[in-house]
């Protein structure tokens, strides 16, 4: 990465809100706060209101999506993610069970990939977002740069959890050898996909600028 050019300077340490303007989240145009409609890209409604921070629904939405994702994560872990049918025997496997089986078979890299994508990333994401929400609401002002970076990482890695859902999809589509071996998806697959989507929506609803508000 290259360093920022020397010419970059903050406008007297002023935030856009303090200057009575807002950045359009879609096209980065600078607009007066309260503009109903971005003249440059045509964005309007909630998206712009959020950008002007006049809309205080960001926290509620984030909490709601977070709660939904936690509720979906429970069945995603406890219900089977896929069934394996061999000669009339039906075997269930859960996410953690699958990781342990892979580890037992010695496929350590794959076990680690699945563990990171299906357990570490979702749990870490939910914990980080809860912490960020709490620090906004309890007005913890410390380590803002660090928290903003955490938020950025959370937003970036969220999609990668879908790996496990895709693996189930591929196995179901591929392993259809009749009596010899057939793989069927379990209810946890959809619950897990729902969990990934709701954590992505939670991260998208959270407004990182709230971490930087001086006097809330």
């Amino acid at each position: 990465m290259r360093p920022a050019p020397r010419g970059i300077r903050p406008m007297h340490e002023h935030t856009a809100t303090a200057m009575g303007v807002q950045g359009c989240p879609v096209c980065t145009a600078v607009l007066p706060i309260g503009t109903p409609y971005c003249a440059r890209c045509g964005t309007h409604g909630h998206t712009l209101e959020r950008a002007g921070m006049t809309w205080n629904g960001s926290m509620q939405r984030t909490w709601a999506w977070l709660l939904t994702s936690v509720l979906l994560y429970l069945p995603a872990n406890f219900l089977p993610i896929m069934y394996t049918r061999t000669w009339g025997n039906l075997r269930e496997s859960t996410i953690l069970g699958g990781v342990l089986t892979l580890w037992g078979h010695g496929s350590y890299p794959i076990a680690i990939v699945i563990f990171v994508a299906s357990v570490l990333v979702p749990v870490g994401k939910i914990v980080i977002l809860v912490w960020l929400c709490l620090s906004v609401q309890l007005r913890y002002k410390s380590a803002r740069r660090y928290k903003t970076r955490l938020y950025r990482i959370t937003e970036f890695v969220g999609r990668w959890s879908m790996v496990d859902v895709f693996v189930v999809g591929i196995l179901v589509a591929l392993i259809r050898l009749g009596n010899v071996m057939t793989i069927l998806p379990g209810p946890a697959a959809l619950a897990f996909a729902g969990m990934v989507f709701t954590t992505m929506l939670a991260a998208g609803s959270f407004d990182p600028r709230l971490l930087w508000v001086r006097e809330a």
Partner: peptide
């Protein structure tokens, strides 16, 4: 205040809302 008061050389940080003059 119109769009022209803050022409295209300014950008509001998407993550911390700082208004920055872009060279």
């Amino acid at each position: 205040m119109g769009v022209t008061d803050f022409p295209a050389v300014h950008i509001a940080c998407h993550e911390c809302d700082l208004l920055v003059a872009l060279p």
